[in-house]
Design a protein around this nucleic acid. Structure first.
Lengths: 141, 141
DNA sequence: GAATACTCTACTAAAGTTGTCAAGTATTCG
DNA sequence: CGAATACTTGACAACTTTAGTAGAGTATTC
């Protein structure tokens, strides 16, 4: 249960590759594709979204590629996933775009809300820097 | 992102209704259907699964219905969801039935694993009793 | 024996996911 | 200039999952 789509997964892995070139080495999409084993065409969709949301910028022409707009330590996994898949919304009640139909208080509303907050809280504390440094292996984060 | 399927959601809500009759009042499926606004036929599938896994038992004939097999305080939301949707598996790498294809250490493996553990940890601390008593509203659980 | 109530399997429409494809634009370097 | 590199965008389609419906059957009580 609670599977993350491949877009989100690949997005994080792509950002990880781009982060490794920060701040001055643009990473071409082809390189990301080879290293992370994801097709160039699919990556384009993902990186486009991340670029439009301001997480990365692109440099055209030979020697070009993608570069982070902020320090790896300032880009959380949560922010990447939110741009690609929207906010955590365990149920449709909690999706800002849908909302709850049932007027009376739903017994499980608070449950899913708490869970969502727990998840986002965690994802917002982990950054690309942590991924590069392997912080997750070292402490109890 | 990370939406729970309706089967899981309805399952928890159905268990909540059944819990209210514990220990001696069987709740007929029709009553659950009306109170939680889910079709009888769909509920049948869900309750069948929960019965086969031993969380509830059924009593046939007039006056029959479903009854919990354990105290509400001893049935966690996590256990209900696991029976209906399998274990938390943010990515296919972490699904016991699939496993990771990439032999080399995936940079994000630990990330998704930690997240999954956080989620299951939370869901295992909340019980049907908490749902009935509204514990989530009262403390910081 | 009629009413109540659970049991089980098959099936399907809709939605979402996971990509591919093709045509185009921008930039650099020799 | 012009060729190579690299990003940009939108359309589209196969596949899978989800969310449910349908229907025939079994068991129990009063």
């Amino acid at each position: 249960m609670l599977r993350l789509s491949t877009k989100g997964q690949y997005g994080v892995r792509a950002m990880f590759e781009i982060a490794k070139g920060y701040p001055d080495k643009p990473i071409p999409i082809k390189e990301i594709s080879e290293r992370q084993d994801v097709s160039v065409a699919y990556l384009e969709q993902i990186l486009n979204k991340l670029r439009n949301r301001g997480l990365i910028k692109s440099i055209k022409g030979p020697g070009g590629g993608y570069v982070l707009n902020k320090k790896p330590a300032n880009i959380s996994i949560g922010s990447i996933l939110r741009e690609l898949e929207g906010p955590v919304a365990i149920t449709s009640c909690l999706d800002p775009e849908e909302g709850c139909i049932r007027v009376d208080g739903c017994v499980t509303y608070m449950l899913w809300k708490s869970l969502g907050e727990k998840i986002e809280g965690f994802l917002d504390t982990v950054s690309l820097y942590d991924l590069i440094e392997g912080t997750l292996y070292k402490n109890s984060k």
